[in-house]
């Protein structure tokens, strides 16, 4: 171990003395939104295992991609990028594929993506009814694939979603859905009393997953409820 440390140290010293490596720290940044091309609303996302934005910096070959994470509300921001031209493409998202584009990132650049979400959760309502949290909603799917599942997710954090929940009710659909059907999902509070404690506030969010390769869930905005 010691030997390795010495080597690394030596190499680090040797190279940090080089002029070439005295680059400025990253000063540029990129922020923006994912906007539903039809409704102009933000497209809700997952913070964990969610949509990512792949950046390939020009001038390096091969180049390691960088991935930006998108916030749950459908916005993103990274202020620690090097100013340069990049090839940018949202990947593994919850919307119809978007082509890569070249973009020059400078301090404070913004880039919005107009996308068509795989699924729109419409007429969503989440209420506390007796000992239950009851969600009702309709599903409008924008591609012909099956809807794999729908879910109601609960977490103390507002970034609640399928990969970040303390309690959930899910239903497998595995079918093409009818835009007029009202779906109802319930979370029973007493049987989740260890995680959903009376008197506390939790966030509840409706999600639906299309059955497509690498697709992520689509969501309605989270709702805060005191139980």
């Amino acid at each position: 171990m010691k030997k390795i440390h010495i080597y690394i140290l030596a190499v680090t010293l040797a190279f940090s003395a080089c002029k070439l490596d005295n680059l400025e720290k990253p000063a540029a940044g990129l922020s923006g939104k994912f906007i539903d091309a039809q409704t102009n609303e933000l497209v809700q996302q997952d913070i964990i295992r969610g949509t990512q934005i792949e950046l390939k910096e020009h001038g390096y070959d091969p180049v390691s991609s960088q991935f930006l994470v998108v916030k749950t509300d459908g916005t993103y921001e990274n202020s620690m990028l090097f100013a340069n031209t990049y090839t940018i493409q949202p990947v593994r998202g919850n919307f119809i594929a978007v082509e890569p584009q070249e973009f020059k990132i400078s301090p404070g650049s913004t880039l919005d993506f107009k996308v068509v979400p795989y699924i729109r959760i419409r007429e969503a309502s989440i209420t506390k009814t007796g000992n239950k949290i009851v969600a009702t909603f309709k599903i409008q799917q924008n591609i012909i694939s099956n809807v794999k599942k729908i879910g109601l997710y609960a977490h103390v954090d507002s970034r609640v979603g399928e990969p970040m929940r303390q309690a959930a009710t899910e239903r497998e659909l595995n079918a093409v859905t009818d835009a007029n059907q009202v779906y109802t999902l319930e979370i029973d509070l007493p049987s989740n009393s260890a995680v959903l404690k009376p008197g506390n506030q939790y966030y509840f969010r409706i999600g639906a997953l299309i059955d497509a390769s690498e697709a992520k869930l689509n969501y309605a905005p989270a709702v805060r409820i005191t139980i």
């Binding site: 990512q52 390096y60 091969p62 390691s64 991609s65 991935f67 593994r92």
Partner: peptide
């Protein structure tokens, strides 16, 4: 070390 060995990186890294 793909910068040096020139290998294709695995997905999402």
């Amino acid at each position: 070390g793909i910068g040096t060995n020139g290998l294709v990186q695995n997905p999402q890294y």
